[in-house]
């Protein structure tokens, strides 16, 4: 199955619901695989999407994860309802995290989420307003890898 027109969808993610963590990313990954997108692109998209999904679960009351797939690119937008990030530059530094102790004990909150998202995207944008929320936009181009599975 190839991509002929834009395929889009969205997931509502509830903050604090660790029991459903990964559901949205898994669905997106399965969809990308079914479209015959190369393994390497699927791998990068899965990492970026999963980290975005986890950030909504760990840090916010709720958010929406949207995807849009065209023959040229995958676009993922994660939009949440707060609390917003005070210092984005600091938040983008690998190892920096504001996660509470109990979240760290689960192996989350190691300060790798945002850097992982950036690393695995071709384009990465983040906007945040304290008290309102954060929006992350990630674009991954499809023509970078020629090895189809």
């Amino acid at each position: 199955m190839g991509i002929k027109e834009t395929i889009e969808g969205s997931f509502h993610i509830i903050g604090g619901d660790f029991s459903r963590a990964g559901e949205a990313s898994t669905e997106i990954k399965t969809l990308l695989q079914s479209l015959g997108i190369s393994k390497e692109i699927v791998r990068r998209a899965a990492i970026a999407t999963f980290e975005a999904e986890m950030n909504i679960i760990i840090y916010t009351p709720a958010g929406i994860l949207r995807y849009e797939i065209t023959p040229e690119r995958i676009r993922i937008i994660a939009e949440d309802m707060g609390p917003g990030i005070e210092d984005i530059e600091l938040a983008m530094q690998e190892g920096y995290s504001t996660a509470p102790e109990w979240v760290r004990e689960l192996g989350w909150g190691s300060g790798m989420g945002l850097p992982n998202m950036k690393k695995n995207s071709d384009e990465f944008r983040i906007d945040s307003v304290v008290g309102e929320g954060t929006t992350v936009e990630m674009i991954i181009y499809l023509d970078k890898s020629e090895n189809k599975n």
Binding site: I47, F50, E51, G107, W108, S110, M112
Partner: peptide, 8 residues
């Protein structure tokens, strides 16, 4: 034991 490390 860090989940994002495993993801990456």
């Amino acid at each position: 034991d860090l989940l994002s490390d495993v993801m990456a």
